[in-house]
């Protein structure tokens, strides 16, 4: 369970988040969507403990996040950042195993090898296990980082655009795994740009714009043409595809043809 209340964040003069509330109970996958610069990644940073809010607080497993030591918080939440980078040529297997470090010298370390292997299989990087991380493509790096976050085996999982560099197959696979992890009892927060993808996999969607939560709820309630058109400042159509909303932008050429 992770819960943010009344989060205010300012960077310089700019108000990035202006009183945001978000609660994600175990078993739920929440997608954060919104235009560029809306504050999604900042909110994820606040939940992760990277960004200290000017006002408001985050509760992780019933305790203020600020009261956690680094290692303790790493036993409760795992994070996949948008930017993957690695200073040296560690192998994929080593990078995924880094996710086990919060459990070093605890009874749970006994399962390290098995957990690392399972995480690599789940993210389809097991055949890259011996490759050096810097030699991978962007998508392979993203999946390796996702495997690292999974290997951490935490009740809260925070993912910042995990599908940005992925092909369709791996987009679906990654969100499928995130969905499964949520169904196994984790609280999962995913920042996404693809609204249709969010609609297909999220229990709830939280639309953020200009540092505010503009709407939050089940996909079919939140994803309306009026709200999205206003928030993204571009007209969209919301279609129904077997009960799941699909969002497509309106393009000038198409409008003319209709």
């Amino acid at each position: 369970m992770i819960e943010a209340r009344g989060i205010h964040v300012t960077l310089g003069d700019k108000v990035v988040l202006d009183g945001v509330d978000l609660a994600v109970p175990p078993g739920e996958l929440v997608a954060l969507v919104g235009p560029n610069g809306a504050g999604k990644s900042t909110l994820l940073g606040v939940l992760a403990g990277d960004v200290r809010p000017a006002a408001g607080s985050v509760q992780l497993a019933g305790r203020p996040l600020s009261s956690y030591a680094a290692r303790e918080s790493a036993q409760h939440r795992a994070v996949q950042l948008q930017q993957q980078g690695l200073a040296f040529g560690f192998r994929v297997r080593d990078v995924v195993a880094m996710g086990r470090s919060p459990w070093h010298r605890t009874p749970r370390a006994a399962g390290d090898e098995e957990v690392v292997r399972a995480a690599m299989v789940r993210t389809d990087v097991d055949r890259l296990a011996e490759r050096a991380f810097p030699t991978l493509s962007g998508g392979e790096q993203a999946r390796t980082s996702f495997a690292r976050a999974l290997a951490q085996e935490t009740p809260v999982l925070l993912l910042d655009e995990p599908t940005a560099a992925l092909d369709i197959r791996h987009q679906e696979a990654v969100l499928g795994v995130a969905r499964a992890v949520a169904s196994e009892g984790a609280a999962v927060v995913v920042v996404l740009h693809d609204l249709s993808l969010a609609a297909a996999y999220a229990d709830r969607i939280c639309v953020i714009a200009d540092g505010l939560v503009r709407a939050a709820g089940p996909p079919h309630e939140v994803l309306t043409e009026d709200l999205l058109g206003e928030v993204y400042r571009h007209p969209v159509r919301v279609l129904d595809h077997g009960g799941t909303p699909v969002v497509v932008p309106v393009r000038a050429a198409q409008e003319a043809r209709c």
Binding site: A48, G49, D50, A69, A70, R71, E72, S73, A74, Q75, R77, A78, V79, L81, Q83, G85, L86, A87, F88, F90, D94, V95, M98, G99, S101, P102, S145, R148, Q152
Partner: peptide
Amino acid sequence: LDLLALGDRAAFHVGVDV
């Protein structure tokens, strides 16, 4: 130091007091 190769933020995410 191994974990620090992930970068400051990610190192913190896996439990390093950077």
